[in-house]
Design a protein around this nucleic acid. Sequence first.
DNA 1: GTCCTGGCTATGAACTCCCTAAGTCAGAGG
DNA 2: CCTCTGACTTAGGGAGTTCATAGCCAGGAC
Lengths: 164, 164
Amino acid sequence: MDASPPATLRVSADTPARESWPPIDDQCPIGRTLDVVATRSAFLLLREAFYGATRFDQFTDRAQISDPVAAARLRELVNAGLMEKVPYREPGQRTRAEYHLTAKGADLLPALLALFDWGDRWTFAGGARIGLRHAGCGAPVHAALTCADGHPVSASEIELHRRR
Amino acid sequence: MDASPPATLRVSADTPARESWPPIDDQCPIGRTLDVVATRSAFLLLREAFYGATRFDQFTDRAQISDPVAAARLRELVNAGLMEKVPYREPGQRTRAEYHLTAKGADLLPALLALFDWGDRWTFAGGARIGLRHAGCGAPVHAALTCADGHPVSASEIELHRRR
DNA sequence: GTCCTGGCTATGAACTCCCTAAGTCAGAGG
DNA sequence: CCTCTGACTTAGGGAGTTCATAGCCAGGAC
């Protein structure tokens, strides 16, 4: 549990010091993301969507959240474009609505999976009883840091820089 | 913004249906992780730790949160083992405390980086003005899904299974 | 000793999140 | 038409998170 070496990111020479950045929540993508999903219930609903839930009662039952919270959060997720309401009709039943992840919502999977990894590594003695594996080869799946050239990347090799 | 193909995970044949799982928040690593970091302020403090903040006033200034919230959240993060308080002494100053990420806290970097990626892709027109790149080769860094055998993995290729 | 500064701590109010319990509403079945 | 069910909505309240402001305290400077 030692803190060395530091796990902080580098800052490139052409990027101004962190102190002089403009109000950060407007500029940092992490803050922007947290503006959309910051509550426990939003994460849980997205988790259940990834685990296959589509109907309202599935979300409330599986995420263990109450009806009002589920309704409010699902509406927010739909408004934010992460999910969409799709009507469906089972034979002998009336038309109902399902909630499906959009591409925007599905793109949060790496983040959810990184949280899964962390919880697996640090909050269970010996690992959780469920795991994620590659359906093709059976090897466990992780959210790993990689650069676009395919190199594996460690925290100390990441550099924060100003674009354009 | 179409929802097909589904971005949900598969469930392996030897894993019982989602409905029959035990109370999920005890078993799902994502829920466990959210027990430790679920507030916006916790994420922001971790973000600033990755961006290099170590001192109390740096955290409050950069994460734009008030003193009481920063103090409470930092204490929680220390108690949870994600950060540690380290005394330091500048010449002519009295001893003060710095906050450093532990290995446990630093291990959340992939999750933070996945949130960074998402915010960059979906909340800015044309991308954010800051980016993350590999200090070695200059290519952008992402949190990508990979399996332990090194294959790139898409959402539909991930299988949820019961371990042991 | 007294002053001063950085690092918290205390207080109180506003707001958000979440819960339970009860009510509404559309529409298929009868 | 009436009933029933699933999908919410409404009402009320408790807990958690946040803020602004103010106060405390250790200890180096003097």
